[in-house]
Design a protein around this nucleic acid. Structure first.
Lengths: 136, 136
DNA sequence: CATTCTGTAATTATTTTTATTACAGTACAA
DNA sequence: TTGTACTGTAATAAAAATAATTACAGAATG
């Protein structure tokens, strides 16, 4: 995963939740996060693909939540943006001639799986509504 | 955190565990991981700072485990290498004029803390000995 | 004292991430 | 029906992060 996709997605969703019902455009969102609007639009494409938001093109268009924030689980948001493991991967192929190098990726993968399961359980305890509820 | 520090450190520790007692040099380790020896030496400096390994300079020198692998907890290894959060940070400062932008970092931090606690609990269930025990 | 290591700095190369530019297509609204 | 304000998307450039390389001083060994 690009390491800032989770916070960016959560920021977008939080903002949309606060703007309840309104279609918010990517410039406004980008201004809040302080990143480029094109990045926001790309991230929104992903969020939409996962059913969290819906968008309208054209004048007055923008993006809004596609479901109630109480029905958006943070574990699902995490899964929607993750592509690398949070514990990291060595990008070089370890040496297959070494007993450790040969097996480590398998064992690493198992370990990550285990840890990720608890991570998801923990994140899964919270919805977007819980999260936005903390904002004053 | 540089995203591959955890797997690199774990690879180093695993290798040292398998080479019980021997002082292993950075070239051999680098060859197993398939990265540059200088990177290995840097990573070892960190592992040593945390008391996991000890090194000898000079001919015949190298690095070896400083404690029994059963006494090396994977949560501690994780803590030793982590510097960024695994859930990622947006590197731009969000807009302080926006109610969401102004507060999100605080709430994100809290969320991460919560999740990290469970992550540590899960990793903490395993020692290096447990991990290396999986290798055939 | 030659050899084989570590420690470490400096530099360069590579890769990843982010920003920017550009423009087609869509929808609204005057 | 036309101008305006959006999204979608590609292409490129800029910036930042990561990794590799080179270099060499200093330590320990035989």
């Amino acid at each position: 995963m690009n390491n800032s996709r989770f916070p960016i997605s959560l920021h977008i969703l939080t903002l949309l939740d606060q703007m309840k019902g309104q279609y918010v455009n990517s410039d406004l969102i980008a201004g809040s996060i302080n990143i480029n609007p094109v990045l926001v639009r790309k991230e929104i494409i992903n969020l939409r693909k996962h059913g969290f938001v819906e968008s309208r093109e054209g004048k007055g268009g923008g993006t809004t939540l596609a479901k109630k924030s109480a029905d958006i689980n943070l574990a699902d948001v995490y899964l929607a943006v993750k592509d690398k493991s949070f514990l990291g991967e060595s990008k070089n192929q370890p040496n297959p001639k070494c007993p450790v190098g040969r097996q480590i990726n398998t064992h690493l993968k198992d370990l990550y799986q285990e840890v990720e399961d608890t991570l998801l359980k923990s994140l899964g305890n919270q919805t977007l509504a819980d999260f936005t509820g903390k904002f004053k």
